[in-house]
Write a protein that binds this DNA or RNA. Sequence first.
DNA 1: CGACGCGTTGAATGTTGTCAACATCAGTGG
DNA 2: CCACTGATGTTGACAACATTCAACGCGTCG
Lengths: 269, 269
Amino acid sequence: MEILHERNPDMATLDGDTGREMAEQAVTRSPETQSAHRKEVSPGLRRLATLTSLDEAELIRIAFMAERTQRRVKARSELMREGDPIARPLLILSGWAARMRTLSNGRRQLLSLLLPGDLMGIGRGHQPVALSTIVALTDVAICHLPRQEELDPDSGLAAAYDLSRTLDDHYMLAQIMRLGRLTAYERIADFLLELYERLEPAGVARGGSFPMPLTQELMADAMGLTSVHVNRTLQALRREGVVTIGNSMATLHQPAALAEMVGHRVPIF
Amino acid sequence: MEILHERNPDMATLDGDTGREMAEQAVTRSPETQSAHRKEVSPGLRRLATLTSLDEAELIRIAFMAERTQRRVKARSELMREGDPIARPLLILSGWAARMRTLSNGRRQLLSLLLPGDLMGIGRGHQPVALSTIVALTDVAICHLPRQEELDPDSGLAAAYDLSRTLDDHYMLAQIMRLGRLTAYERIADFLLELYERLEPAGVARGGSFPMPLTQELMADAMGLTSVHVNRTLQALRREGVVTIGNSMATLHQPAALAEMVGHRVPIF
DNA sequence: CGACGCGTTGAATGTTGTCAACATCAGTGG
DNA sequence: CCACTGATGTTGACAACATTCAACGCGTCG
């Protein structure tokens, strides 16, 4: 089994770099301006903007803050360890991370995924503490965002925080359903559907296709299975033409039909 | 399979009755006053008071509000349905409830338990919506509490809301670990340990013993197993002298040793 | 080249689910 | 008071699902 976890990575090393033109671009983004330099907006900011309607001034402030506070983290390093105090909210600008827990005997469970546009540490109360270790699954870019108390309660960002928490909960419940009551086949199908659904607003998924950086072993840790069984189940899904996986990409060929088949549910908001 | 769910019970029927002397008693409660009428405080209020230090004035207000707004709900009825708006926070004064979801084919999963002192609808944002149906597993008494926005942010109750949310999350993560990576034997042991741990501050568990109103089928729904397998696994636990179950009570004989054996973790706060 | 991570495969084993039957008990109504 | 009913717990035989262990291919990277 491969080993994740490498405490204290270069979290504090590199600064800005991709955040360069974010501010202007964020401002530029309006429903009509669909192409051009719009591409350069980070997936995380794009996804954040889909959560609520953010006005121009807010977008500028967020984009600047993202630029100023951006950090890059290498795959496999720990973003956060269980019990750590969380000083300020963090936004995932790009890359994948996950909350995980490991048992003494080595069994490992991925608790929830953190994808571009997801927030960490907007939790609960004034002294939030990480409830689980967070590991970067790919190279990840993150930035700080204002604490909830610093926000105008009626601002778009405050609403985005609220919605983000609700979605977190929704996906935790989905995870519980998967692990408790779905077969391996259904779990994987449901999981892939969720990935597509969550990546799409970040602008990194289109037409049923999305990046799939997870190894089969990590998928196994996410689904409470072994990597061998994930492998065999993926083969079944491929054989049936449901999905194509390879080259770090996945494609769902009949998302709607598949969702129907495995009873996949989308968030109700 | 037994059918839960009975939409719209007599939620709106009976009023106060056990809440009679709550106010005085709540006030009376101080570390020294251990016995006497103290017994009459509802498990839910007792548990709530253990979450943070509530000053006298706060206790009085809460106890009065509990008395004024108390409702009783019969076992098997729905307290709330997925998608319902949640007008105000609810506190469980006594009895057990659960968040559950059912799949089209009848498979059912208990997502999380709600025990005396647990809160519902302190969720997220200003327009919280129930993410899952909530079913009363036993007869339940509930009451309203103030909305977070109505509280002094520095009050003990606000702190209790924060802590309650954190604990909710903790127990959801525990549920994910159980379902994803524990064997049936470990799941049940871990679950029983959690029950004891959560019921103790409500004053309804002592010396390893606690009320156990769940049928084996409900335990199965909680643990992602079948009732037949729960039955067999419970027999193993009994045979090994780990637990005694019967007469709607359960007793753990070596909680500490059991926790060690199955790697059970307690909340870190 | 060698080491390593990752995906793949086969065979054997283990765990959990399914189906069906029966025991017990509490409650219900004749 | 008894027969009936329904919910719950229990058991056995069997099937299905998932894990384990071990091995190998393939590509990447140093």
